[in-house]
Design a binder for these strands. Sequence first.
RNA 1: GGGCGAUUAGCUCAGGUGGUAGAGCGUCCCUCUGAUAAGGGGAAGGUCUCAAGUUCGAGUCUUGAAUCGCCCA
Length: 1140
Amino acid sequence: MFQPVSSQTDFPAQERLVLAFWKRTRAFDRLRQLRAHAEKQFSFIDGPITANNPMGVHHAWGRTYKDLWQRFFAMKGYNQRWQNGFDCQGLWVEVNVEKDMGFKSKRDIEVYGVERFIRLCKQRVLNSAAMQTEQSIRLGYWMDWDDPDELRWLAQKIVEDPQQVITLKRDGRTIRGTVEQIVGMLGTPELERSYFTFSDENNYQIWAFLKKCHERGWIYRGEDVIPWCPRCATGISQHEIDTEGYKDREDPAITVRMKLRRYDVSHAEWVSEAAREKFERAPGKFLLAWTTTPWTLPVNVMASVGPKLRYAIVRQVHKDGEVAVYFLGAKTLHMLRGEYEVLGEILGAHMVGWTYEGLFDDLPAVIDALKRWEDLHDGRPFEHPVIAWDEVSEEEGTGIVHNAPGAGPEDYQLGKQHSMPKIAPLNEDGYYLDSFGPLSGKHAHEVPELVESLLKAKGYFYRHEKYLHRYPHCWRCGTPLVYRMVDEWYISMDELRYHMMEVAKQINWIPPFGLERELDWLRNMRDWMISKKRYWGLALPIWEYPDGTFEVIGSYEELKARAVEGWEAFEGHTPHRPYIDHIKIRHPVTGLIGRRVPDVGNPWLDAGIVAYSTLRYRTDRRYWERWFPADFITESFPGQFRNWFYALIAMSTVLEGKPPTRTILGYATLLDEKGEPMHKSKGNAIEFNEAADKAGADVMRWLYARQRYDDNLLFGYNALNEVRRQVILPLWNVYAFFVTYANADGWTPNEALKADNAAWSLAQHYALTTLDRWVLARLAETVNTVNEHLLAFDARPAVLAIESFIEDLSNWYVRRSRERFWGSTMTAEKQAAYATLYTVLTTLARLIAPIVPFLSEVMWQNLIYGVSVETAQDNGGAFSVHHQAYPEPRALTEAERALLREMALVRTVVALGHNTRAQSKVKVRQPLNKITIVANDEVRRAVLAQRELILDELNVKDIEFAEQESELVTYRVAADARKLGKKLGAAFPRVRETLERMPTSPIVQAVRAGQPITVDGVELQPDEVIVQPVPRAGLIVAGEDGIVVGLDTTLTEALIQEGLAREVVRRINDLRKAANLNVSDRIETTYKATPRLAAAIAAFADFVRGETLSLSLREGEPEDEHRTSDTFDGETLTVSIRKV
RNA sequence: GGGCGAUUAGCUCAGGUGGUAGAGCGUCCCUCUGAUAAGGGGAAGGUCUCAAGUUCGAGUCUUGAAUCGCCCA
């Protein structure tokens, strides 16, 4: 017996029962044991999820793929590592801890204490990891998970007292250490389970990588002007800002007038001689320059013009009577305020070399900088020059750009080219340094008014306005960035990028455009900035000496050997700040003492190293060789070309020159149902927990798995509901149908049927019908398709094939087989039906297991062990569906292929038959005499083979074939454009028109006879003409693809009586249902009917009794209980039933 | 500013090598029903973004434009 299955199941609740079953039976551990010694292995490396917040539905998308292929290969018999990863270090964790603590700046962290701050970061990571672990388990993701409670316990301990000694148990082993040490060992061979990128091993492996880079001379300290977050007080790398940094912002834009000192207008073209004289007479001549970053004006050094642009020379008389002449782009005259007169024009190239009065040459910092420049240039006085810059445009501003090489990245490069002084105005919090006069101590974003008033006082101000533009913001805290000149650490890409491109080409990128994207990034990327002036992260293993030289330390052991100071303070701690900062080393030659640079590392180093660190590259090289490279990795595409994929490839290229993985699967972005990004603040975000509770993880997983990789996924409850209704419910209904009838019949599977390969020998043991053989062939076909595509990491076609099979199973096999299951005695045919459907369901359960692990498990436990998942137990060995072997592909026989074709034709005929029924308005319950079919020989053979099925489906008594020339159809003759268009060329339209006007009969006859016909003097071969039957108008017919079906709607008294009898049956069965009778309960039936109806019941009494399981059917006064009365087709019926 | 992609039914999308437009969802109508939170049949709905070109024939090929993505400056 099977456990009864309700068609009204709460799927999310059922999933929780499955989770409990897996937990109490340790089903995942059993799977690992079963595959532990497998020859074949599948190496998946998890891209670490940021352990900072709860998991989102977008994470669940990728995690579905990860679980799907791990389960698939496990069922295929592959051994695996099953290691999840958490990304732990970096600014995002710091920012959230700061938020929790109410910190406003780095100073707050210093005051609070770096050591305690780091503890809070670790705590946050461990707590987030615990939550994400629970959510992943809820998704059905099988991994070697940590116990979430243990993680939370460690989180608690790490803030309480990291030096407390604790013990953890693993498989009977005891691991002992301080809390800090234990946390630093998470994911290593001792503790196993999820890896954490803050582990000692991960950090030291990065050290080894950086050391190797240094040995090749690729690590350098560079000065550059970079985007800088004044709140986080750190540089934001190019990788980060490009991804999601830009937001609209309204800024004050200021136009300044720079007073010319030296100029030469000999190349100018004047409007008139008078204009030229006006120019000469004007007391002040100015360049107009426009900027949206007024805070950079105090460190202005030069101005640039487009050498190919034309500049207007205009004269204005201001309200105070001042007469001034301005130079500005000829297309930017709208920037002027008030009336003006154009005096002439001059080419930008002819302005190069002019000089102007510095805007803030009186500030101490500027005086100092210019003095230093003069000292370096033999005492030559500095003059602010006009230079040429091709990037200058007239689209915004005045066509003249003010340049501050200490405060803008392009300006910095220009300044370098022209050997200009570079003046950096801001400290790391975004405030002006001392020696900036009235500006000192003011924040960059609060000085526009002050700058404006200072400019006014000097006579350099022209106008201001508000300006809306895209401005870079900190991707973590949202603060508008500034540009700051700083020293950062870089890995040079000059040489590495080409090696990386070679490595990237060896990887199978899905979808294929991934490779192009990655190569594009590699071609264009600048050197890799690896430093961040923060606290929580990889301690960069760079020690600097007072003379500016530096060394990179490659390991714990090397550091210990080189340490001359501070080792006691560090020993026993993880390699993080502040302990690591105590260590000093001595230069072997100069004897100078080196200190560690205070910077921490770019977090993508942490994630990029995992193909080495988690595979024990440093500690167990044979293990690494076994599992490297990965067979498969997958993450969302956006961002990863420059982040994880990039870092993985970079580090693997440096360490081994090999690809870290064979296949990279990338997928697009998850959006809401309207196609908009999900944001908590917008209220359109769906929490993972909420979706899992409402829709169920299986439904979510199906939606994810059927998504096209390169399309954005529009995620929402409508989409989920569609999956549930179209896939999950039909499958569940078939399963429920099977269980209900098998139980009613007391049918149970024998051991051979339970065995995996039973499907292929069924025919030898059971009297299979055509329909049975058909559904088994469809199943085999589906198994083949699914295997093929899953092996190629292409989930969608596999999922669609299963959907199509479920549709066929539900709407054809089961629907057409129902009556076989209804029969009251166990016939051989019925045995065959059970055996077939049982085999289909057990095979299907295994086939869909990687996609919907819960549903498949529920079916499996009941179908194999006859238990509900609530009470299911460890039955020894491979007790879970996920322990089974995946259904293997096999070649279909010729007979099977023919059967599939035949059934497809039959279904077309049936669809057409339903169509004629609908047109005729004669409902299907009313039997009719016959249908007439016009079709070719192949269709005729198919129809004859499936004659009974068609009769029953369409409720007709007979099928008749009409001759081709019949009253049902006429013919349409058309030219085959594909063939004749090429052959006839320009003559084709004329021939076609003539052909279609000719009488059809002779042409049809000729084509049938295989004879050529002549049209317009052109001889056409039979295969160049298309003959299509067309239903004759006025008849009830339906046609498609050369098949035409006509319906004979003549009603005889016998047919009418039969139709009435069916109406009676339906009403009695409605009563049975209303009375909550079991499908096998027998009843006694009493009825009263109008005479014509009574005659019909009498004539079809056996039929009525059989269909309603009535032991007796008698005319009389119906009883009060279970009674109904109804009028139909002009007849009235009152009927009652009673359970026997 | 450069590169790539897209633009087809109300919505989401299919449409090798040119031959007279399809699916799912939604809407409406009909129908079946002991799988019933299902099932079946049908209808309406499209100047295939626009323009020019090649061709007997263009959703499909070429060029240009517009709009929208993504990537890079």
